[in-house]
Amino acid sequence: MRPDKVEIKVTLAGEDVEEPIDRLGLTGGDPWTVVFCEDVTDAAATTALLDIGVVLRVRGKGSPTGDSTIKLRPSRWSQLDPLYFENTDPDEDHPEELKIEADWAGDTRTLAASMKLEWSDDRLATVPAGGWLDPELFSKRQLDFLSTCSSGRVNLAAVSMLPPIKATRFEEFTIDGVPSGARAERWQVDAGLDFLELSIVAKPNKAVAAQAALTAFVQQMQLPIDNSGVSKTRQALDHLIAKSTS
């Protein structure tokens, strides 16, 4: 068993995100809202779910569409139930997408297993920011996936929704030597945290060459790479939770 694709990411650092956006010629883009859900307490600024490899994310992609995702990262094949060993596309019986892929960021290489549900109603708009998580944002199959495959128990009734992140997904562009289109996504968490991530997808046997091509492109464009080794999800959650408990 092995993933059939690798998502390769580079996060751009620097105080002025507009500069790499201009240098890459990125214009327009689709405005999204990204909301993460965490086990937050007033007494401690911790990312309890993220620390056990559980990411609960809800996105609004323009009224009324959006999606909800339960992601296990880092994950192991051995923690996945046999029901969830293979990728599945949405269909009439199961509208959720199950995706297992390798996740590369610099020298960090992990396995990620996620289940995403697309929806076309205003369910996100009815949930107050910073309030308790509404389990209706996730399907029964997603919750079964979480309870069966997570490395720790999660009671959604005790999970909070963090403040929304303003995101922009730009149109794909091409990079020489990269087999797929490159994506650029900006996260404007607040005035204190704003960054851009570039990502590509490659087959496992071409991932090393694709990662080298992406790195060479970023260096050629003289874009500032964030070498902290901290994912954009970790950066955003640490920042938001620290503010909420300060």
Rank of each mutant, 00 (worst) to 15 (best):
D103S: 13
D42R: 13
V35I: 11
I52W: 11
L237Y: 01
P74H: 01
M115W: 03
F195K: 08
R169F: 02
F138K: 11
G25F: 04
R169Q: 07
D39W: 13
D238Q: 05
V58S: 13
V10T: 02
P224E: 15
V230I: 15
V6S: 03
E19Q: 11
F36V: 13
S246H: 04
A112S: 15
L50V: 00
K5D: 12
L193S: 00
Q188L: 12
T88A: 13
P224N: 14
A43V: 00
G62V: 09
I21Y: 07
S231H: 11
L117V: 06
A102L: 14
T69W: 04
M1S: 13
R76D: 03
L193Q: 00
L156T: 09
S180I: 09
R186T: 03
K71N: 08
L117Y: 09
T88L: 07
R183F: 02
Y84G: 07
Q219R: 15
A167D: 02
E92N: 08
P82N: 06
D238L: 01
D42E: 09
A158R: 09
T46H: 09
L133V: 01
L49C: 02
P163N: 05
A209D: 10
H94N: 11
D93H: 10
S231Y: 10
K9R: 11
T69N: 04
I225L: 13
Q220H: 10
G14M: 03
Q188D: 07
G152W: 01
K166S: 12
P179I: 07
L214I: 09
G181H: 06
I21W: 05
A13G: 10
L162K: 03
K71A: 14
K243Q: 06
W104K: 12
Q219P: 13
L198Q: 05
A191Q: 03
K9G: 03
P90K: 04
F138D: 06
V35S: 12
E136F: 09
P3H: 08
G131W: 01
N155A: 13
A44H: 02
G25Q: 07
I225H: 13
D89P: 06
A48D: 14
I100L: 05
Q222D: 11
D81V: 01
A158D: 08
K166C: 05
I8S: 04
I21S: 03
R234C: 06
D93M: 06
F195D: 10
T108M: 10
S160C: 04
I100R: 09
D93E: 12
T168D: 00
G131S: 02
M221V: 15
